[in-house]
Design a protein around this nucleic acid. Structure first.
Lengths: 215, 215, 215, 215
DNA sequence: AATGAATGAGCCTTCATTCAT
DNA sequence: GATGAATGAAGGCTCATTCAT
């Protein structure tokens, strides 16, 4: 049946994200899913095929959704919106976190699923970000430099998802909690990034669009 | 003997970083190291203990060494020095890449080795960075905010090591090569970060030490 | 299936009784039983659980069955009946001797299986014996003394099963054969025990029920 | 050196008696003895040879010593003396109990050491007992019957050493403690046995030596 | 006489997978 | 379509033993 198949994918995704591919046993999955040991091989052929289905399912349910912003928004407002959305994804506790967990594992050791993941999920967001960064800089700034600066923005967001253990250990549980509220972190990263971009813009050409003025 | 022990750690580190903890078998390690299966348990007790030693060894060869800067260096110069050193560590092609691979795995799914890693390797660097950030900001900025801003600096560096697959896919192999030269990336990150910090300093209190002037 | 399970228990019992728990390997058991190495862990969880099942099986086939005696039997007749049954169990050549071997090993170094053994198999018989001993003694004899005397009766029976090597060496194979016929040994032990109990009864109180008279 | 050898035998004996041959590791022995892992193989060749030495040592230090009784002692007094000595051996907590433990293991699964054990240690005691039993019975009682009755006496003593777990479970820790004092148990067994023997003597021939009168 | 590192066989157990029902 | 018993390969680990010092 299809219900069994879905249940299996759902359960497998959670367990794979929690324990990794090797440490998750098919018995454990079937037990949690309330199915028979043989059901996985019946529906998917083998464990690896089930894993792939789970990964696919994970980023199906976490749509890229490039933020549509209000008409007439200034570039800094756009940047703030993008960063806010990123931090929402990174920190939102509502998100069944195993989706991101599973994707992170994929990124840590990329398989064939990784590229598809980037193309479908990350590329659109990055393209949007690159647009806004471009708007905030004089045209004289070369593409590769703009990409590097966009990385600087993205990097700050990723840290809060992908380097949690370090962060927690460095500043203590208490401070880390304060740093990882969506609003606060989005505000801080936005301010920092706008400052950084303005600095580049100022150096590059004083005649440029003066992005900092509107912040 | 000590030679066997070292050989084992070296070999294990490479295999663990390549295949992960679970997928690496002790038989494989011993075979590559030219030792007996029992040698691991003789020298380390069990597979996990060997893993921990391998992780320790990985960041032993990548020494923390908080950068001693020239007397009378200005805060921006200090920041530039720190970032330059971080990027050297992150991008240095000399470093057998399995060291970082292993550490990344550790951070992705922290075991008991993770805390030791942070304490011994990352903490000193972060403390130094926090000092410089503090010098660049008015005293009114609270500690937790300063920590968050230090994270923003660190995050930019980490991206180039820990999210290479994404970066490569996003901007293409060619551009990614250009972005990952030590000098260029250090310069860009430094400029971006100083701008970001100055922006915060300016907002916080115009009377403050005007860190940006000396950049 | 159940056939595999039974085959495994049967085979394991024989090998455990022959070589002991430690010296018997699961491979050996499975090989003799014609099953796969993993079957033991599928059916029993681990080697120890199989051992316990084998011990239980051993005394299952040697049923406790407290002897129901004829209505109106005198206490001495009851004692004779109990001893006769005990000796039948101890000496019956039909009993595949590994059952007792296994139980003896269990008693020599009790594991978790020992208590269950005593509770299910030995307790009922001992309770019955204690009843009869009580009937043969004046009421003034305290419980603990009666228990000690019941031990004296049981002990004589156990020797013929559990100390065979000594017995054989002490009196020679020929004499030992003569001593270990069911009828002869039961008669001798009964007579000896009745005499012993009467002796205690007489000392305790001449007015008592004079159990010896009916022998 | 000889001191190491002795220390090894002593330590091995205790551990073998506690855990059995298979479950005792040479590492454990050497650790407890404060010697090197290789010392066993240096001094004894292998683990089994050490075991044999330990068994030899065990019954060397527990001499048979047939009790020399006072001149003019009556047969019942002699029987009481023998039983008392047996129970002393069986129950004496002073005896480093591993000697008997080790011997019991030998008896449970006789090796070549078992016969020597019986010959040197048990035979003399049994011969002495048989003598006394003979004195307590009319001459008409055949040898094999007298041997059987001697077994009945010995059996009662053995139970308290060799079937402790059963005893403890059957009557409870508290009662079992009371039953296993040397004086009490020796008295009870003696009384019971004299009664039993007298009963046989009486049946056999009323004219016989009336052994019970002197008790 | 004694050490401790090294050996290789073998242990129990677990795994993903298949097969008969 | 679904079950659960059965499979065999491999896993980590422990052992008694040996070897070079």
């Amino acid at each position: 049946m299809d219900a069994t198949r879905q249940k299996l994918i759902e359960t497998a995704g959670q367990l794979f994200s929690r324990d990794g591919f090797e440490s998750t046993t098919v018995r454990e999955i079937c037990q949690h899913a309330g199915t028979n040991v043989a059901s996985i091989h019946y529906h998917f052929g083998d464990k690896e095929r089930l894993y792939i289905e789970a990964v696919k399912h994970a980023h199906c349910h976490q749509p890229p959704s490039p933020q549509p912003w209000a008409e007439g928004a200034t570039p800094p407002q756009k940047l703030a919106a993008i960063i806010h959305q990123m931090m929402t994804v990174m920190l939102d506790a509502e998100t069944p976190s195993w989706h991101t967990e599973l994707m992170m594992r994929e990124l840590a050791r990329p398989t064939s699923a990784c590229e598809a993941l980037v193309r479908e999920f990350i590329d659109p967001l990055f393209a949007q970000l690159l647009c806004v960064v471009t708007e905030l800089l004089p045209p004289s700034v070369p593409l590769v430099e703009r990409q590097g600066l966009a990385f600087s923005v993205v990097a700050q967001c990723l840290l809060y998802r992908y380097h949690r253990p370090i962060g927690r250990l460095l500043v203590g549980e208490n401070h880390f909690q304060q740093l990882t509220t969506i609003e606060e972190s989005a505000r801080r990263i936005t301010e920092f990034s706008l400052g950084g971009l303005q600095s580049v813009a100022t150096r590059e050409g004083a005649v440029a669009s003066k992005p900092g003025e509107s912040s």
